[in-house]
Amino acid sequence: MKSQRIAVAGGQGKIGKHIVEGLLEAKQRYSLELIIVLSRSEAPDITYAGNSAPVIAVDYTDQASLQGVLEQHEIDTVISTISGHTPDAFITSQENLLQAALNVPSFHRFAPSEFSIPSEQVADKIKLYKMKLPILHSLRRAKQERPTNSFEFSLLNCGMFMNYLGYGNTKPDGHKAHGYLARFPIIFDLSRRFADVPGDGERQIVYTHADDVGRFVAAATQLDVWEEYLDMAGEVATINEVLRMCEDVCGTKFNVKYNSREDILARMSSAPEKFMENFFMEGYLATIDGDSDAIRPNNLNKLVDVKPMGVREYLEKWWGN
């Protein structure tokens, strides 16, 4: 059953806002009845493409109040883009959101906060991703316990956000290259003409522009059936292939550092303030080991009519002359 009344949890910022805008852009095309945003804080409505989504302040520790909001708006689909700085808060927020939704008569679809590399593939390498696993167990249990076809869930993944390739560009509107995402480089720092490569650069990476993630998710809500995994991609390319595109568009060779496993381990530290640096290095290790490779390449691309931006197109927009 297609989605018509959708709640986006955490939809005020980062990838969540891109998804809200993707839904608002497609509201008339898909005859969506309602889009709401669940947030920990009050905020004005989100308006985009002539449509608006109210922002509703909720307490993710209060299951009953969450249920009340979802019931009031007769929500059938919940898309979680919740983030959390502590595993306990992240796990509890998503679990309470799911359990509240399961008690709402109109509800039948849930997408947990994935939107990256599939968490199950990399949780052994990337510690932060372990906190994404409990909700997957709860989702599978809920599907087993509910009558056939009355509940679906999907893990929506997009690989790496293409927007990080825009870091440091000097275009007059260069800030738009990042969308609502944080501004930092991953692997490629085009402003320095530098590439910090895990392994030999022959592993493939999935790149998707954040705006296209919103469009893919909006289109996915109109599928008659949700598969457990729906992977999207703007482009799948090896790191070396992306490097050659970067060099071609910038018109110069890059300074490239190819990192062995030993190089990466030497850059890691047990100091608490090095948490984020370690997170990226753990991602490098997962890349070297092939744990971040696309194992269901672009299956959502084949199910919906979305024409995503490719890497070269993005590079030419923000780095071309």
Rank of each mutant, 00 (worst) to 15 (best):
M1D: 02
A7H: 04
G10W: 04
K14S: 09
E25D: 10
R29Q: 15
S39C: 13
P44K: 09
P44C: 10
T47D: 08
T47H: 05
V58D: 11
Y60G: 11
D62G: 05
D62H: 08
Q67K: 14
V69G: 08
E74S: 15
E74G: 04
T77Y: 07
S83L: 05
A89T: 13
A89P: 02
F90T: 10
E95H: 09
N96M: 09
F110T: 04
K127C: 03
L133T: 01
I135E: 00
L136S: 03
L139P: 01
R141D: 10
A142N: 08
Q144T: 06
E145N: 13
R146L: 15
S150K: 09
F153V: 10
Y167K: 06
T170Q: 14
K171R: 15
H175M: 13
Y180A: 15
F184I: 01
F188H: 12
S191A: 14
R192P: 00
F194A: 00
D196K: 07
R203V: 04
Q204K: 09
D212T: 03
V217S: 00
A219S: 10
T221M: 13
E227G: 00
E228T: 14
Y229E: 14
E235Q: 09
E241N: 01
L243H: 04
C246T: 02
C250L: 14
K257M: 03
S260C: 06
S260H: 01
L265W: 05
S270V: 01
P272E: 11
K274W: 10
M276E: 15
N278Y: 08
F280E: 06
Y284K: 05
A286E: 07
P297Y: 01
D305Y: 00
M309S: 09
G310Y: 00
E313H: 05
W318I: 09
G320C: 10
G320M: 08
